[in-house]
């Protein structure tokens, strides 16, 4: 099948402002959008810039807007788009550096702000090895361990679009992962951060994040659980 790719282009080193370029490509219905981008870069325009690493939905580097919806280019199949023209744009809400590459630093700054690491200064168990937890305790935060920090959720959040200071769903998901970890002792500190003006109360339950997540994390539910936890401690 023959497809048209309408791709957002921007190069700060040229005088051409942001614009769209169209490319005709031959595609198989089972091709992924990433395959098409590679075909364009390989055969038609080697200046096209986009991020990719593993190409199997694990590293999270190729999140972009495909026909208006955030997704990983390596997980979207051509046949599922039901369209002869595929529009590919960079993630919204972050500064475009070149073509489909955005500046991820504000996103990672929000991630770092919620202390995304185990906090526990209690003495180690007697055997000096692991801090054990039951299956049920592990299950409590299992869903939010799946995050790959691709930013598809945060850049689909209307509150984040409106105000980049909003901490965003990905940071809340990663806070949830530690807040509900029975081994962690930093829960109250994280809840205090998330109760602030840029935190969970900026969530308007639009559910965009849940739809955008390529890992199918129940993000809006995780945010609601963090809200409940803050209410419990306030």
């Amino acid at each position: 099948m023959r497809l048209t790719l309408k791709i957002f282009r921007y190069d700060p080193n040229t005088s051409a402002g942001p614009h769209y370029d169209r490319f005709q490509v031959e595609a198989d219905p089972n091709d992924r959008v990433l395959d098409l981008l590679e075909a364009v870069r390989g055969d038609q325009d080697d200046t096209l810039s986009f991020r990719r690493s593993c190409a199997h939905g694990v590293c999270g580097s190729d999140a972009m807007r495909i026909n208006g919806l955030n997704a990983l280019a390596c997980k979207v199949l051509v046949k599922d788009l039901n369209s002869d023209t595929i529009q590919i744009e960079p993630l919204l809400g972050l500064r475009v550096e070149k073509d489909l590459i955005v500046d991820m630093e504000p996103f990672f700054a929000h991630y770092r702000s919620i202390l995304p690491y185990l906090i526990n200064d209690e003495p180690l168990p007697e055997d000096g090895k692991e801090r054990l937890q039951s299956e049920a305790e592990r299950e409590r935060f299992d869903d939010t361990t799946k995050c790959i920090l691709c930013a598809a959720c945060t850049t689909s959040c209307p509150s984040f679009w409106a105000d980049g200071q909003t901490i965003g769903p990905a940071a809340i998901v990663n806070a949830h992962r530690f807040i509900f970890d029975s081994r962690d002792r930093g829960r109250l500190k994280r809840l205090k951060i998330l109760a602030g003006q840029a935190g969970v109360w900026r969530c308007r339950t639009a559910f965009n994040c849940t739809e955008a997540c390529p890992r199918d994390i129940h993000i809006t539910r995780a945010i609601a659980e963090v809200k409940q936890e803050i209410l419990k401690h306030s």
């Binding site: 202390l115 906090i119 002792r185 109250l188 500190k189 809840l191 109760a195 109360w201 401690h233 306030s234």
Partner: peptide
């Protein structure tokens, strides 16, 4: 100093 800090009553909550 994580352990005793509470989210407490803040304005946004």
């Amino acid at each position: 100093d994580a352990i005793k800090e509470k989210p407490g009553r803040n304005y946004e909550t």
